Simulated scan of single mutants.
Amino acid sequence: MIRAVRAPDPQRLAKHEGQHKYDHGHALVLSGPPGHGGAARLAARAALRVGAGLVTLGCPRAAVGENAARLDAVMLRAVDAAEDLERLLEDRRLNAICLGPGLGLEPVRAELVAATLASGRPAVLDADALTLLARDPCLAAHLHPSCVLTPHGGEFQRLFPDLASVPRPDAVVAAATRSGCVVLLKGAETLIAGPDGLALHAATGAASAPWLATAGAGDVLAGLIAGLLARGLPPQEAAETGVWLHAEAARRVGPGLIAEDLPEALPAVFRSLGL
């Protein structure tokens, strides 16, 4: 049975008096080489807007200057190789990772995916990280229950080619079972499968958000989910909450939306929830 994704419980998103930033987690977003940082910056800003206490963007040393010119509240760390990431993750306060948006497909990027999975941290794998998973079954074998995969239709087909002819709900359930983690298949009707069953979020009809068909919107969604993971939400709840917030923000912006608008619309969405 498919259940509908509902508006989140405001208490699950609230911040309370007496808490400090580390009470709300520290998300790490991994970025790619110079000239390819926009997607990761969108994800990082979304993670910060959704309430992660701290967000760090890890990028190649050559891209630090570029990203520093575009970011203020998001911190920066140089990450050129898996060893750099492993050292960074010695800080256990870094408790959620987002990788894929603008990551790149070079062998060193596959090593970052491997190091992320080996860390056991809650992680959102999107875009280039999904392509790397599809290319290397050994990487996919290290997925774990704290991972969230966020493919669009083409990425899903590359990851799970034998499920291409299976009805979408059954395919997503099969993919989640096979991979051992939460799978979020993006679309106007987004399906999310994991240990809590199969959920549907339909941004159609009166609830439609067609303006999400724009470059960068998926990167924002990945950042939202990573921020919610950092705040301690379980993977499937983080995925469902992220999808709901993403579409609600899009409806508030309306026609003319670009991806940069989505994080900025979140405060109004939160106010509508009574936060």
Score class of each variant (00 low, 15 high):
residue 55 V to T: 08
residue 137 P to C: 07
residue 165 S to P: 08
residue 115 A to S: 01
residue 162 D to P: 04
residue 264 E to G: 09
residue 2 I to Q: 08
residue 195 P to H: 05
residue 215 A to K: 03
residue 193 A to I: 01
residue 159 L to Y: 06
residue 192 I to D: 01
residue 189 E to Q: 14
residue 75 M to V: 07
residue 211 W to Y: 14
residue 11 Q to P: 04
residue 270 F to T: 03
residue 62 A to R: 12
residue 170 D to K: 06
residue 203 A to T: 06
residue 182 V to W: 00
residue 153 G to C: 09
residue 52 A to E: 03
residue 124 V to G: 01
residue 40 A to V: 09
residue 267 P to K: 10
residue 185 L to P: 00
residue 157 Q to E: 15
residue 203 A to D: 14
residue 107 P to T: 13
residue 67 N to D: 10
residue 268 A to V: 14
residue 206 A to E: 14
residue 251 R to N: 04
residue 263 P to F: 12
residue 96 A to H: 04
residue 241 T to V: 14
residue 6 R to Q: 12
residue 57 L to W: 02
residue 41 R to G: 02
residue 143 L to K: 05
residue 160 F to Y: 09
residue 109 R to C: 02
residue 132 L to W: 01
residue 157 Q to N: 15
residue 261 D to T: 13
residue 246 H to L: 08
residue 15 K to E: 11
residue 8 P to Q: 10
residue 136 D to L: 01
residue 72 D to K: 08
residue 275 L to R: 15
residue 115 A to M: 05
residue 123 A to G: 00
residue 91 D to C: 02
residue 89 L to T: 07
residue 267 P to E: 14
residue 214 T to G: 09
residue 51 G to C: 05
residue 108 V to A: 15
residue 38 G to M: 12
residue 133 L to I: 07
residue 148 V to I: 10
residue 127 A to T: 05
residue 250 A to V: 07
residue 51 G to I: 06
residue 109 R to F: 03
residue 147 C to F: 02
residue 212 L to V: 13
residue 190 T to A: 13
residue 225 I to K: 00
residue 106 E to V: 11
residue 250 A to K: 14
residue 167 P to L: 06
residue 10 P to E: 09
residue 127 A to C: 05
residue 226 A to Q: 04
residue 150 T to H: 06
residue 42 L to G: 02
residue 30 L to F: 12
residue 117 L to Y: 03
residue 34 P to I: 09
residue 64 V to S: 07
residue 205 G to H: 12
residue 201 H to A: 13
residue 51 G to A: 13
residue 263 P to S: 11
residue 238 A to C: 09
residue 150 T to W: 02
residue 199 A to R: 06
residue 22 Y to K: 05
residue 241 T to M: 04
residue 144 H to G: 00
residue 169 P to E: 15
residue 117 L to H: 00
residue 138 C to N: 11
residue 185 L to E: 06
residue 167 P to C: 13
residue 142 H to A: 15
residue 240 E to N: 12
residue 106 E to Q: 09
residue 274 G to Y: 09
residue 161 P to H: 03
residue 69 A to R: 14
residue 188 A to R: 12
